[in-house]
């Protein structure tokens, strides 16, 4: 017999069951989840992987980048650069003493001296036995998923293409410099000849032809790799999904798409 109470409870149960979408029963693989999160309508999302363990600081990537992208060779601006970090301890080896970082000329000529450039004409040569850790970290534009530089552009001259690469329209840029200030990673600069903002664009003209970026091509040690994050079989995607990778300045919420293997806490 149908009582009023039963009718109401069954109606409510039935409504709850009907409101459950079929998607609630779908089991998601990590690849499928990625596709949903990253709004998988384009087939490409370029990502970069830097293995700092492999970098030896030769600077051939910087040289190739400047030549390939027509960045004036002698001007002190560059789309990519390599930083050297040296961490020394005090004599008793008890506390972390000092972190030194330098990148003379963006490491265009590599690191061909043990002397650290402290800036303002000062230098320091650490003794070999004082060095606790020393390593090289290549840097380039992170092609962030939340690019701060794009948000601050007042004229729509910098934008994110559908494949994730942030580009600059040289004809439309007014040179206000907001983006140079807005980038937390300091990758933007003024092009000395075009007088507009400039930065790494993953060698857009090369990757769109299926080639690798000039820096990836130039690196003898395989410290730099470029890949497509929307392709689950891509070698770079595999490493990002399965190895312990880090990004720079995660706390800024920019969601950088350049991933680092062997990142150390001293790297800023």
């Amino acid at each position: 017999m149908i009582t009023r109470r039963k009718l109401i409870t069954n109606t409510l149960k039935g409504m709850a069951a009907l409101s459950l979408p079929a998607a609630a029963f779908e089991i998601l693989t990590p690849e499928r989840l990625n596709a949903i999160i990253y709004n998988d309508t384009a087939k490409v999302r370029y990502v970069f992987l830097v293995d700092t363990n492999k970098c030896v600081g030769c600077g051939l990537c910087v040289k190739a980048c400047k030549n390939e992208n027509e960045i004036p060779y002698e001007a002190n601006v560059t789309r990519t650069w390599v930083e050297r970090y040296i961490i020394t301890r005090d004599e008793r080896h008890e506390v972390l003493e000092k972190v030194f970082a330098d990148s003379p000329k963006g490491a265009r000529d590599g690191f061909i001296t043990g002397t650290i450039d402290l800036g303002h004409g000062n230098t320091y040569t650490p003794r070999k036995e004082d060095i606790d850790k020393a390593f090289f970290v290549p840097k380039l534009c992170n092609q962030c998923d939340n690019p701060a530089c794009v948000q601050v552009c007042p004229v729509g001259a910098t934008y994110q293409a559908d494949d994730g690469v942030v580009l600059i329209d040289r004809k439309w840029c007014i040179g206000c410099g907001y983006c140079v200030m807005g980038c937390p990673y300091g990758v933007r600069f003024f092009h000395p000849q075009h007088h507009v903002a400039d930065k790494c664009n993953f060698c857009y003209h090369r990757i769109k032809k299926g080639m690798k970026t000039a820096c990836v091509e130039a690196c003898p040690f395989g410290a730099r790799l470029i890949g497509n994050y929307k392709d689950p079989d891509d070698a770079v995607t595999r490493i990002i999904n399965t190895k312990r990778v880090g990004v720079l300045k995660e706390e800024f919420g920019t969601r950088p798409q350049v991933f680092y293997l062997g990142l150390s806490m001293e790297v800023r």
């Binding site: 030549n67 992208n69 690019p147 794009v150 934008y159 994110q160 004809k171 003209h205 091509e217």
Partner: peptide
């Protein structure tokens, strides 16, 4: 928010000259 731009600029970048041939 992120991609308000002159659409033709993407092709201008794609037409940039490749110098390192591999």
């Amino acid at each position: 928010r992120y991609s308000f731009h002159r659409l033709g600029n993407e092709d201008e970048w794609k037409a940039f000259k490749v110098k390192y041939k591999g």
